[in-house]
Nucleic acid binder design. Structure first.
Lengths: 152, 152
DNA sequence: TAATATATGTTATGTTATAACATTGCAATG
DNA sequence: CATTGCAATGTTATAACATAACATATATTA
């Protein structure tokens, strides 16, 4: 898998700023910092890694609630997703385009990839309907090896 | 969703015993206790709930590693699954029939249901192939409301 | 500017999970 | 039948992940 280019990162950050502006969402300094740390990381990042990074950037210790609150804000608004299988967070590269997001996560290089194709979404919907089940949210995390890593 | 009947539970426990016997897997007392606690619970159960239950049953305190080791054994052999989205464990009612298992989890009544249909599995496989990705394991957890609970 | 809401700081603690090493029990081998 | 090896368990401690509760600050708006 390929990590994101600098321009993709910039675009991603800019998109979030625009969405917040037009929706009157308070993208505060901390929230912005946390978002940038997450997306720039390329790989899923853990809350306490974000905490350390923030503390370093600002030259003063931050505390867990600060980070978790920012993460909550970012998740609520679809800018970030949590990968439950590895207790880590990733940026969303097409926020607002969809509610649910599915992931491929390489166990070797740790790079992840969103894989939100509609046919998969449909299939999941159908499964739910078939079971008379009303979905509120879906966790789909596929772990394994990406092309590069499985060739090594 | 419906919870399992007593006979289903018994059958499930018996099946695990048979599988362990024929595969020479050491189904020790603790492992058996943990499995029974999990399947009898009907709902996803947390490790520390299992710990409390075990401690009560045996009238002496057990420790986390005891429970986690038993869980590891049960997961490795496909008798139990972990629901990553809620840090809880559930029994598998058709162990060895498949490697991957997908779940519907009702947020209201907490009852869960396995939903491992092949078309869903196929769809996930295709998504992986399409991304040149080799799956080692999949987490699919669909949270929402079951029929009963959404009618209330 | 006072009142209100929103966000952040701070301390403490709750929850989930594992490392590390000691001990036990049992089976295989000499 | 000792002894060695191994799998499982006991025990202590701590790591890793997350939130409660309350104080303070900052922004908004009446």
């Amino acid at each position: 898998m390929k990590s994101k280019s600098t321009s993709e990162l910039k675009a991603s950050i800019h998109r979030v700023e625009e969405i917040c502006k037009s929706n009157k969402l308070g993208l505060t300094e901390i929230r912005k910092q946390v978002f940038e740390i997450i997306v720039k990381n390329n790989k899923p990042i853990k809350a306490y890694e974000i905490l350390d990074t923030i503390s370093n950037i600002n030259n003063k210790p931050s505390h867990p609630p600060t980070v978790y609150r920012a993460i909550d804000f970012l998740i609520e608004n679809g800018f970030v997703h949590k990968l439950n299988s590895i207790n880590s967070f990733v940026g969303c590269f097409h926020p607002k385009a969809h509610k649910e997001c599915y992931f491929l996560i390489c166990k070797k290089c740790n790079i992840y990839q969103e894989c939100c194709d509609d046919s998969l979404k449909d299939r999941i919907s159908k499964t739910a309907i078939h079971n008379n089940f009303v979905i509120s949210n879906t966790t789909l995390e596929i772990e394994g090896h990406c092309l590069d890593c499985s060739q090594k």
